[in-house]
Every structure is written in structure tokens, then in C-alpha cells.
Design a binder for these strands. Structure first.
Length: 1027
RNA sequence: GCUGAAGUGGUGGAACUGGUAGACACGCAGGACUUAAAAUCCUGUUCGCCCUAAAGCGAGUGCGGGUUCGAUUCCCGCCUUCAGUACCA
């Protein structure tokens, strides 16, 4: 039989499911390998061809590793809590669990169609209670933990309590809230139970924190930053305000340094690591204290401000360039800085207040667009530079942000461009501090040279100066070395319904955990998925939902990243009811060896997962510091849209008073012009105001008549169509550039940019009477339909793949037409995995033909299965071992596109050799199995092997002996340009080769009698003659 | 602006360590088979020049330089596209 992909694929998909072929257990006799795809959210739209790209790659790798003798864990599941299901629920009133279930079912069907070797017995769903039980459990562990910087890990809260009982806060080295109290053991002992709880909350790794959120009163909900545009909600355009709210947070900042250091030990793409490094944003520098100058008589006359100044007379700044401190010519505070009001002198008060008001008006967008101009205002106050006692004016400016560092900077105009511009604008001094500094036109931040104008560091270099300044500041008590991170603690609450409930209740305003035995805390039923009238989250609607019928539960739910921050452990032991995963299983599977997914998760999921993993390791629940050893980003698949070009509107004459635009348009708006005909036509409109006028017999461009020639004939053909279609009596028709419109056309009725005109006419009622002007200038009116050569060519453009652009290609349609094996190989064949590329179905035929050709190797012309047991010859063995080597190398470096090409070459070679020998073909089947699992299972069985055993067979062994060559066909180049080829034994010495090459007739011709200056011979590579 | 990735035929792409640029495939053109079409097979296909043809000549990997016997590959400068990020002290 010919290659019957449909029955073959259905048969084996069924077989794998029935026999649980890919079910995997811990097996200490084999090395483990864990291949994971990033957790999908089961959206209602189903899969498009872009989604499986990574799954196919990971499946190939998983199948390859099985053949290489590894025990492979390759699971799949769903990150099934999330906003789209909730929004759909709000619109339709349907419970999100129901729509989620339906979406998962659809996803599963689509995944099954592609022949993946997932172990479905380990499927997990974040929204199922037996899963979120453990998400809640991990939350509880975080609540019961603090970060001990002395041991540099998280510890149970009991060790903190012990420390407070015995030493108070002395020697306590931790990461906590800013407002912790300094305590003696006796203070602690004197605390009431509630005071203790309130204080401990400031140390816990998950804690309540007041944070600002985008609150939209009209929608009654909190919005994410990207849902807000210019102060209005993206949906509906309602006003959004900043609102303070108590929210659960995660103290990820405690792990900033470990998250940063860990990047050095993992094999991830460099750009992705770089993104995380930037996000963590470590800067090494120093804190420096500037004391405020004693108030002058002007301030002194106002007694109250005089007193306040004495109590808080220091300004702290953070700087990464403490070496430049002698170049400080002013300080800048953020307008929101708390000291501003206190230090502003009476004379400057009005100006400062006006500036603050102006800053408040500026949106973030305005500030971003406007980086060139600087603005600020002088407070009238001065500070004292701690290194030399210089008097430094204090300004405020909106380029300094309250939220970063201390909200104050020391300005060094010679070394920082923003400070430089500011100094220029307000006539502040620009002090050179390094002899190598070039600062005529702009600031020079380089660290080269020796210091000048810099007191006790004059003559030193950067390294020496930095150390000396810090030592001086520490000695004077005016500063210290300090490391700053940009990363903030992560907010861990959402005012939404469809997420994990937080296992917390409140007593006297303080949070307490529910008992572990009470997990899971089930998501309660609500009547509507909207906030309550009083603005509480949807959970506030749940009836009689109280802890012990008495205490309020937390009403917010966990964010989307909660369930995905630990799911790879659940796959190891998905059904466990006593632990999130069994200890022995965690010890065996350890970590993910290969993780494949998109780079959009760089700073979300991939950072939070690393954080939770480190935490779980600190508490001894897991063994590895990093969860994902190797990570590959698959590129995005973009859509490739097709367009048709139609007449949209034009002006006509011929009816006098009875002019009816509508009627004309309806008649003429059905003319569709093929791509190149359209472009030819558009050339007449190079000048925007150009127009063409048609009458029954003539055509004119503006006022100039166009005569009929070879190159303008198509215009006359076009005219004929216009008049045939136009209403009778029409005298002139005028068209311009604006008479046409390009319309998206469903890419599924376009093949190689050729429109299926029949399907097109059937696709919409208004296209029923479409008239086509074809690529060759003929049209559907004069020649009738279905004429062989008359093609309608569509235009094409690369855009995002989306429904509205009619460019979504569904994998189901392609497996229906070509089979899963073809689709799998074609997706790989498209190009390098990491690169993003537009999807284009053109070319899938080539892969399909390849699989048929492969199938043919095993069959005679009547499609009888025939393989011979003859011993293979040299050429056949060479073809085989070439592909073994190539495929193995390619898979190891994730270059799947090149191995598909190599398979094609191998099959072409074996076809030419008419090879149907078992000894060759059986190995070829094994090699191809990771890529095309169905057809290879079928052939494996036909070759007489036990059904279903190919998945666990052995990958063919490469033998270099078969590739050994005696001769090499040297390319002979003269001055770097290849002129001819000459074959010599590989063993031949360069000197002998040179002699033979120079004696060669063809070479002599190029030398034109001159003797060569130099002859370069690289053995087994090339001969180059320099003349 | 900064950071990262990329730029090769009509198209997707290959060339892995500096050594024959364009493998493999699509598309296109021509041919075979067929009453015809589909399918299949064969031949050609970087561009330009020259030519009945065979053959030959020249250019060529975003642009301009450089290193080298030799550069898609290394270095310097520039342009374009995509992604991320944003006044981070």
C-alpha cells in the first residue's frame, strides 16, 4: 500500500494510549532525563501552528534520549487558573471551571493528534484542589519562614523567635520590612501575643504590605499596568486611580544575590540571563551622608523649621561612583522626598511648590518622551560635602525617582550626562575630577586616568580612589559601601475569583494560617464573578464563608504565577496525597534537564520559579539550587497574511440626474485584481493626484490619452471589464489611487499565494459574484471560470498570527491533509528553533514527498513490502553512517532543521542506490523515529520487530570507518578564486601536490606563464596559488 | 537612548573551528507519461555579460573600510529590522 498516514497515525496513537507506552517510573538502574515544556494556559482559541513548535522539539529530544538509554520524564499539564476564563465567566455567567474543562479537552485532542510521547498519567492542573492544596501549603511554608543572612538561607520562623528571645534584635542579620523595631530580649518577652505576631509579620517571607495599585472604580477592580493607558482603562476607557491597598507580598528581594549568582551556573540563552540580571539590577556603590548646613539667619527667623532641621540634619544618597565625590556640585532630591518641605527656605517656597505641582501633572509617558530637557528648582538649602566640607546647594528635579535608592543623588556634572545638562541649565559648576576626562560638550563617565581637584585622592587611579574614599567615610561615620538592587518584592494577591484562595484568616486585623490539616482551602461558590458592592474581591460574595464560622478569610486570590512556580516537582509524583512530591522521587528526578519555551516568561515565571525553588531547597524539601539546568527559547511563529485587491469606490458619469453611486459601487465593487496586475495599475498613480479616466473607447491619464501598446494593453483589458460590469449607460469611469482597497483573505483558501477562487466566492455572500482579473491579464468574464492557467495571486505580509487577520493556521487542518509526521518535520524544517519566523505552509509538500519516498524505500512499485537481507555495500554504509553522525550532532545542538535536510539527502542517496537492505533501513527507521514516530513505528513492526518496542530500542552507533576516504578532491584556487578541482590521495604530501598542481594544464592556463609567488596547501582542505 | 538577536537567490534556509557560497526544500520554466487533468518522474534555475551551442568572463552573503594566501565567518565604522528595557544615581 502507498503511504497511508491516516490509518498508520490513528493506529499508533491508539496503541501508545492503550499500552501506556510512555508511562515512566523512577528507575535507579538508568540515568534520568527530564524534558519539560513551559506550562500552557488552555485558552479557548485552541492551538495554532505556532504553539506546537516547542512541543515538537522537546518531543524529538525526549524520544532521542529514550533511544540513548535514558529514563525520560516528559510530562504535560495545564496552568488552568487565569484571567481569560474569569472574563468569560463574567460575560456569560458560566463557571470558569466548566469552560476551563472544555478548553482542556480541546487542547488534549489537538496534542494527541501530533503524536507526542507525554506521560499523561502525570498530568496536572493548577486549578484542581488536589494540586492547589500544595500551592497553598508552600504559601504556608513561606509564611512560616524568614531569611537569615548569616546562614544565607531561609529558616523556619521558630529560629527567629528563639533569636529574639535570647538576643533580641542584636546580631540579627536579615532581610525584612524597613519599620522593624530594635528590641532587647526583655522587650520581646514583654510583648503581648498580638504584638509578637505583628512584629514577626515584618520578617516573614510572605507578608502583608501596603502597596499602590491601579484601581478602576467603574470596573470595580484592580488593573495591571498594561491594562491602563494614559490614566484610563484599556477596556471601556474608565478613569483609573492610584489606591493604597494591603496586599500579600513575597520577599523575593531576600534572594536577589542568589538569583543573580545562580545565573552563572545554568545553561540558558545569554539574552535571557541578561534580562534577569537587568531586572535584579545590582549596583555596587556606597551610601554617603551629607549633613545639612546650619540654618542661616533667613531660616533661623522661623523658629519651628529651625528646630526640625536640628533633628534630621542628614541627607543620605546612594552612589555607584563614590570616587567622584570631589566633583559634587549640588544634590538633587526627588520632588516627593520627605525632607523637601522641611529644608525649603521661605524665599524658595513658592518656586518649590510650583515645581512639585508641575511634576505631579506629568504622566510617566511625558517624562519618558522628554529626556532632553531638564527641569528643577532650588530649595535654598545647602549641604556639606563630607570629604572636603564644601557647601553644596540642594535642588529638586523630576529625573530623580523617589522609589529608587534613597530618592536623593549627589550630582557630579563632569561624569553624569543628566547632571551635566542640569548644571548647564542652572549655571552650576562642572568640576573636572580626572585628568583624562573630555568634557567640553558632554559628561565623560569613564574611569581612566588620575584624579585631580580631588583632595586626598589626587593622583590615584579609580580602584585606589574608591577604596580610600570609602575607608575615609566609614572612619568618619559618614558613609559605607553598599549594594543596591533594583528588584522589588513581588505582590502576591489578585482581587479576582479564578485563582488559589490564600490559606489565611484574620483575627483582630492580624493574619493567621489555617491548620495544615484543613488544606485544601476550597475555592467557594459565588453568585457572580464580580467585586462586591463595597469593592471587595469576588470571594466577598461567598455565603457563610468564614473560618470556624467566625473569622474572615483572606478575600484575594493568588496570582497567575503561583501554581507555575513549583509545578515541575508535582510531575515527579502527580498523585501524591501526603506531600507535594515524594522525597525519594525528588531525589531521583532532581531538576529539569531541558526546558523549552518562549522568552516572554523571562522575568516573570522564570524568576519566581527560581525563587521558590531556592526557598524549598533552604527548607530541605528539594535538592537542587536551580530548577532548570538548560533552557531553550523557541522563536515566535508570526502569521503570514494574504491580501486581495478590490475596487472600492470610483466616480462615473453618464446618468445625469439619476446618478446612483450605490448602484455603481455595488456593480463595480466585485472586481478583484491579481497582485501584479494591481501593481502595474498602481504605477500610474505614482503622483498622488494622478487619475485615469476610461470611456468606452479611450483611456486618459489626467488629460493625456494613453495609446494602446504592448505595455498598456492590460489597461484596455481592464477597461473592458469595467464597462462590462458597470451599469448600462455609463459614459466615463474615473479611478485614482484611492479607488482600491486591500482586504485580508483567509490564508486557508490560498495555496502558494494562489487564491482558490471558488472557495473565495463561497466564503462570503458579498463575494458571490466576484469578478477576477487574473495574473496574466485575462479575466473571469471573458474566459469563464476554472481556466487552468488563469491564476489569481494574492499579496502577502508578515503580521501577528490572529483571528482578525485571517492568518491563523490550525494544526488539525494540516494533520488532516498531510499527517502528524509531516507536520512535525515541516515545523522543524522551517528554520532554526530559536529564531522567530513567519508561518508559511508553502513547502510542506516537500516534506510530505520525502516521507512518501522514505516509505517507498521499503516497498516495490506495486507497494508490496520488500526488504532484502543482503549485506550492504560500501556506498550504502557510507550513506547510513553519514546520517547517523549528522543526526546525532544536530539533535545534541538542537539544530533540527538541518537534520531534516540531511534525512532528505540520505533518502535521496539510498533511492538512487536502490537500497532496500534491512541492515541499512532498520537503522534509518530508528534515526527518524524521534521526528516521525508514527511511520517509523509502522515500519519497525513491518520489519518484524515486536510492536511498540521502537521507543525503547537503541540509537544506531556511528562507525567512523565507513566514512574514511582515500582521496580528496582539492579545490584549486588562484588568488582565492576557485578555478578547478583536482583529486589527490589524502596521504600525499603538500610538496608533491604542489608539483602536480603546477604541472596541470588548466592551472597553467590561469598562471599565464607567470610563476606563483606562493602556494598554500592545507591537507584535506584546499590549494591556493598566489600569483 | 541602552541591551540583545538578526540581515545570504523569487521564498524558507545551509555553509558547525577562516578554506569550493547558495546544500536541502518551495516556487518557477521546460520536458516525459496521460484523451485530458491530478499524481509521479526527468532537466534547468544567484545575478549580469557573451553565445546557435559547448564553453567562457565578470559581480556577488545589508553598506563602507581593514586583517589574511583566502572572510557569510574575525576587527572598525555605518544603515535597517525584530525583541526586551527605560531618566536606576
Amino acid at each position: 500500500m502507498d503511504y497511508q498516514f491516516k490509518s498508520i497515525e490513528a493506529k499508533w496513537q491508539n496503541f501508545w494510549a492503550q499500552n501506556q507506552t510512555y508511562k515512566v517510573e523512577t528507575d535507579t538502574t538508568k540515568p534520568k532525563y527530564y524534558v519539560l515544556d513551559m506550562f500552557p494556559y488552555p485558552s479557548g482559541a485552541g492551538l495554532h501552528v505556532g504553539h506546537p513548535l516547542g512541543y515538537i522539539a522537546s518531543d524529538i529530544f525526549a524520544r532521542y534520549k529514550r533511544l540513548k538509554g535514558f529514563n525520560v520524564l516528559h510530562p504535560m499539564g495545564y496552568d488552568s487558573f487565569g484571567l481569560p476564563a474569569e472574563q468569560y465567566a463574567i460575560q456569560t455567567g458560566q463557571h470558569p471551571a466548566i469552560t476551563t474543562e472544555a478548553n482542556i479537552k480541546r487542547y488534549r485532542e489537538q496534542l494527541d493528534n501530533l503524536g507526542f510521547s507525554f506521560d499523561w498519567s502525570k498530568e496536572v492542573r493548577t486549578s484542581s484542589p488536589d494540586y492547589y492544596k500544595w500551592t497553598q501549603w508552600i504559601f504556608m511554608q513561606l509564611f512560616n519562614a524568614w531569611y537569615n543572612k548569616s546562614t544565607d538561607k531561609a529558616e523556619h520562623i521558630s529560629t527567629l523567635i528563639h533569636h529574639l528571645e535570647t538576643q533580641g534584635t542584636a546580631n540579627l542579620n536579615t532581610v525584612s520590612d524597613d519599620d522593624t523595631q530594635k528590641l532587647l530580649p526583655t522587650d520581646w518577652a514583654a510583648f503581648s501575643e498580638e504584638e509578637k505576631q505583628a512584629e514577626l509579620l515584618k520578617y516573614r517571607l510572605t507578608f502583608l504590605k501596603e502597596s499602590t495599585v491601579n484601581w478602576c472604580p467603574a470596573l470595580g477592580t484592580v488593573l495591571a499596568n498594561d491594562e491602563v493607558k494614559d490614566g484610563f482603562s484599556e477596556r471601556g476607557g474608565h478613569p483609573v486611580e492610584q489606591k493604597k491597598m494591603m496586599q500579600w507580598s513575597m520577599r523575593i528581594t531576600a534572594y536577589a544575590e542568589r538569583l543573580l549568582q545562580g545565573l552563572n551556573d545554568i545553561d540558558w540563552p545569554e539574552p535571557l540571563k541578561e534580562m534577569q540580571r537587568n531586572w535584579i539590577g545590582k549596583s555596587v556603590g556606597a551610601m554617603v551622608k551629607f549633613s545639612l548646613e546650619r540654618p542661616t539667619s533667613e531660616v533661623g527667623s522661623q523658629d519651628s523649621s529651625d528646630l526640625r532641621l536640628r533633628t534630621s540634619d542628614l541627607i543620605e544618597v546612594f552612589t555607584t561612583r563614590v570616587d567622584t565625590i570631589f566633583g559634587v556640585s549640588f544634590l538633587v532630591l526627588a520632588p516627593e522626598h520627605e525632607l523637601v518641605a522641611q529644608i525649603t527656605t521661605a524665599a524658595q517656597k513658592a518656586e518649590i511648590e510650583a515645581y512639585i505641582a508641575q511634576t505631579k501633572k506629568k504622566s510617566e509617558l511625558d517624562r519618558m518622551a522628554d529626556t532632553k530637557t531638564v527641569s528643577g528648582a532650588f530649595t535654598g538649602a545647602y549641604a556639606i560635602n563630607p570629604v572636603d566640607g564644601a557647601r553644596v546647594p540642594i535642588w529638586i528635579a523630576d529625573y530623580v525617582l523617589a522609589g529608587y535608592g534613597t530618592g536623593a543623588v549627589m550630582a557630579v556634572p563632569s561624569g553624569d550626562q543628566r547632571d551635566y545638562l542640569f548644571a548647564q541649565q542652572y549655571n552650576l559648576p562642572i568640576i573636572q575630577i580626572l585628568d583624562a576626562q573630555q568634557m567640553e560638550n558632554e559628561a565623560d563617565p569613564t574611569k581612566e586616568g588620575q584624579y585631580v581637584n580631588s583632595g586626598f585622592i589626587n593622583g590615584l587611579n579609580y580602584k585606589e580612589a574608591t577604596a580610600k574614599v570609602i575607608a575615609f567615610l566609614e572612619q568618619e561615620g559618614m558613609g559605607y559601601a553598599k549594594i543596591n538592587y533594583r528588584m522589588r518584592d513581588a505582590i502576591f494577591g489578585r482581587q479576582r475569583y479564578w485563582g488559589e484562595p490564600v490559606p489565611v484568616y484574620f483575627k483582630n486585623g492580624l493574619p493567621y494560617l489555617i491548620d495544615e490539616s484543613e488544606l485544601p482551602l476550597m475555592l467557594p461558590e459565588v453568585d457572580k464573578y464580580l467585586p462586591t458592592e463595597s469593592g471587595e474581591p469576588p470571594l466577598g460574595r461567598a455565603k457563610d464563608w468564614k473560618y470556624k464560622d467566625e473569622y474572615e478569610y483572606e478575600l484575594s486570590t493568588m496570582p497567575g504565577w503561583a501554581g507555575s512556580s513549583w509545578y515541575w516537582y508535582r510531575y515527579m509524583d502527580a498523585k501524591n496525597e501526603n506531600a507535594f512530591a515524594d522525597k525519594d522521587k525528588i531525589a531521583y528526578w532532581k531538576d529539569v534537564d531541558l526546558y523549552i519555551g518562549g522568552s516572554e516568561h523571562a522575568t516573570g515565571h522564570l524568576l519566581y520559579s527560581r525563587f521558590w525553588n531556592k526557598f524549598l531547597k533552604d527548607l530541605g524539601y528539594v535538592t537542587e539550587e536551580e530548577p532548570f539546568k538548560k533552557l531553550i527559547n523557541q522563536g515566535m511563529i508570526q502569521g503570514r497574511s494574504n491580501f486581495v485587491y478590490r475596487i472600492n469606490n470610483l466616480s462615473t458619469t453618464g446618468f445625469g440626474d439619476k446618478f446612483d453611486d450605490d448602484l455603481f459601487n455595488r456593480n463595480l465593487k466585485r472586481i478583484f485584481i491579481s497582485y501584479n496586475q494591481f501593481n502595474l495599475l498602481m504605477q500610474f498613480f505614482k503622483h498622488n493626484d494622478a487619475y485615469l479616466t476610461f470611456t468606452a473607447n479611450t483611456i486618459s491619464l489626467g488629460f493625456k490619452d494613453i495609446v494602446i501598446t504592448e505595455s498598456t494593453k492590460f489597461l484596455y483589458d481592464f477597461k473592458d471589464v469595467l464597462f462590462k460590469v458597470a451599469v448600462e449607460g455609463t459614459q466615463t469611469i474615473t479611478i485614482s489611487k484611492d479607488s482600491f482597497v486591500d482586504l485580508h483573505v483567509d490564508v486557508n483558501i490560498v495555496n502558494n499565494d494562489i487564491l482558490d477562487t471558488e472557495k473565495f466566492k463561497a466564503s462570503r455572500p458579498e463575494y458571490k459574484d466576484a469578478v477576477f482579473i487574473f495574473e496574466d491579464g485575462t479575466n473571469s468574464l471573458s474566459f469563464g471560470e476554472g481556466r487552468g492557467e488563469a491564476k489569481y495571486i494574492c499579496g502577502a505580509e508578515v503580521e501577528k498570527m490572529s483571528k482578525s487577520k485571517f492568518n491563523v493556521v490550525n494544526p488539525d487542518d494540516l494533520t488532516e491533509r498531510y499527517g502528524a509526521d509531516t507536520l512535525r518535520m515541516y515545523e522543524m524544517f522551517l528554520g532554526p528553533l530559536e529564531q522567530s519566523k513567519p508561518w508559511n505552509t508553502n513547502g510542506i509538500e516537500g516534506v510530505f514527498k520525502f516521507l512518501r519516498k522514505f516509505w517507498k524505500l521499503f516497498h516495490d512499485d506495486a507497494f508490496n513490502f520488500v526488504v532484502s537481507d543482503e549485506a550492504p555495500n560500501k556506498a550504502e554504509l557510507k550513506a547510513l553512517h553519514k546520517i547517523i553522525k549528522k543526526v546525532e550532532e544536530d539533535i545534541e545542538r538542537f539544530s533540527f532543521n538541518t537534520s531534516v535536510s540531511s534525512f532528505m539527502i540520505a533518502v535521496n542517496e539510498l533511492t538512487d542506490l536502490k537500497c532496500n537492505k534491512r541492515a541499512i533501513l532498520q537503522d534509518l527507521v530508528l534515526l527518524l523515529h524521534p521526528y516521525a514516530p508514527h511511520v517509523t513505528e509502522e515500519l519497525w513492526a513491518l520489519l518484524g520487530n515486536a510492536e511498540g518496542t521502537i521507543s525503547y530500542a537503541n540509537f544506531p552507533k556511528f562507525n567512523p570507518e565507513y566514512l574514511v576516504e582515500n582521496d580528496f578532491n582539492y579545490p584549486i584556487s588562484i588568488n582565492g578564486k576557485t578555478r578547478t578541482n583536482l583529486s589527490f590521495p589524502l596521504s600525499m604530501e603538500p610538496a608533491d601536490i604542489e608539483k602536480e598542481v603546477l604541472a596541470n594544464e588548466a592551472v597553467q592556463k590561469y598562471l599565464e606563464g607567470k610563476s606563483p609567488k606562493k602556494v598554500i596547501i592545507v591537507k584535506g582542505r584546499i590549494v591556493n596559488i598566489v600569483v
